[in-house]
Computed example of a mutant assay.
Amino acid sequence: MEDMAAGNHCKVTEFFLAGLSEKSELQLPLFLLFIGFYVFTVVGNLAMITLIGLSSHLHTPMYYFLSSLSFIDFCQSTVVTPKMLVNFITEKNLISYPACMTQLCCFLIFGVAECYTLAAMAYDRYVAICNPLLYNATMSYQIYTSLIFGVYIFGVFCALVHTGFMIKIQFCKLDVINHYFCDLLPLLKLACSNTYINEMLILFFGTLNICVPMLTIITSYIFIIASILRIRSTEGRSKAFSTCSSHILAVSIFFGSLAFMYLQPSSVSSMDQGKVSSVFYTIVVPMLNPLIYSLRNKDVSVALKKIFERKIFM
């Protein structure tokens, strides 16, 4: 700690992460559980990116969005999980101030990017099902690449605004973050200076980044379901529903856990509950996405079989 000239405040150079649980008997089981989750997440998402890259018939906007989602999930999990695992095997999990701000920034980039990627995927399904004849024109190379890059640019913008204002905050000597990674709400609880602007930014960007993607997704699916119900053949209806059900499942888990964390009253008890909900958002969802999209998707299954057949006959 370095004393500052002004006031009783000090410049915090490091934080301690409280972790998910302080019960000693749970540390090893939780370590084994989450290292399993992380390995599955890394393998699943990198396998999905590789499969889409190698299979020419998966070179469509839908699968490019899915590949981008897998990249986001891989990065999001890698930003959070390794530091969390350290907490289970060390007595005090130390994180330097620069590393904490970097983790916060990266976490926000990929969190915001996932919100809008899921919205872009819903819009893609809407065009494919409701306007199939216009699909190639509406989802041209220029449009879907612009959407993918736009998602990351906006994620970086939101993250830099939040992190920039977080750096201006003065922190007290109480330097234990009641969380397993550096997140906005637990960090603000340690602030000594005024946090009004930071709270307003969380409210503004939180509402924007949850409501805009959710409204896009809900509107898209209202039109999709209405269009599916007009399909006369049962087989056609079930095929259309199956292509959308995996996306609906992924969206429900992701936004449900996100809303539970950020739309709760700020109290100590809710922060402890928030840890559990953020496990879904940062660890469980990135692990489940490749599973949801691969097991419920015939195109992915066919591509996987072709890759294996190619390897066997080589």
Rank of each mutant, 00 (worst) to 15 (best):
G7T: 10
K11P: 01
E14F: 02
F15M: 09
F16R: 08
G19I: 05
L20V: 10
S21P: 02
S21V: 10
Q27P: 10
F34I: 08
F40W: 13
T41Q: 08
V42M: 14
N45G: 14
M48P: 01
L51F: 05
H57G: 01
S67D: 07
L69R: 09
S70P: 05
T78S: 15
V80M: 00
M84V: 10
M84G: 07
I89K: 02
K92I: 11
N93G: 04
M101R: 05
L108W: 03
A113V: 02
A113W: 00
C115P: 03
Y116D: 05
Y123H: 12
R125K: 12
V127F: 04
C130D: 12
L133S: 15
L134Q: 15
N136E: 15
A137G: 10
T138Y: 13
S140H: 00
Y141N: 12
T145G: 03
L147D: 05
I148G: 02
I148Q: 08
G150M: 03
F154Q: 02
C158I: 06
A159F: 01
L160A: 08
V161M: 10
L174K: 14
L174P: 06
Y180E: 03
D183N: 07
L188Q: 12
L188P: 02
K189L: 14
I197L: 09
I202V: 13
I202R: 03
T216E: 06
S220Q: 10
S220M: 08
Y221G: 05
I225C: 05
K239V: 13
K239M: 13
V251M: 00
S252L: 13
I253G: 05
I253M: 11
F254H: 02
G256L: 09
L258K: 11
A259M: 12
L263A: 12
Q264W: 07
S266G: 06
S267T: 15
S270F: 15
V279H: 02
Y293R: 08
S294M: 09
S294I: 07
S294C: 10
A303H: 08
A303M: 07
K305Q: 13
I312Q: 13
F313T: 14
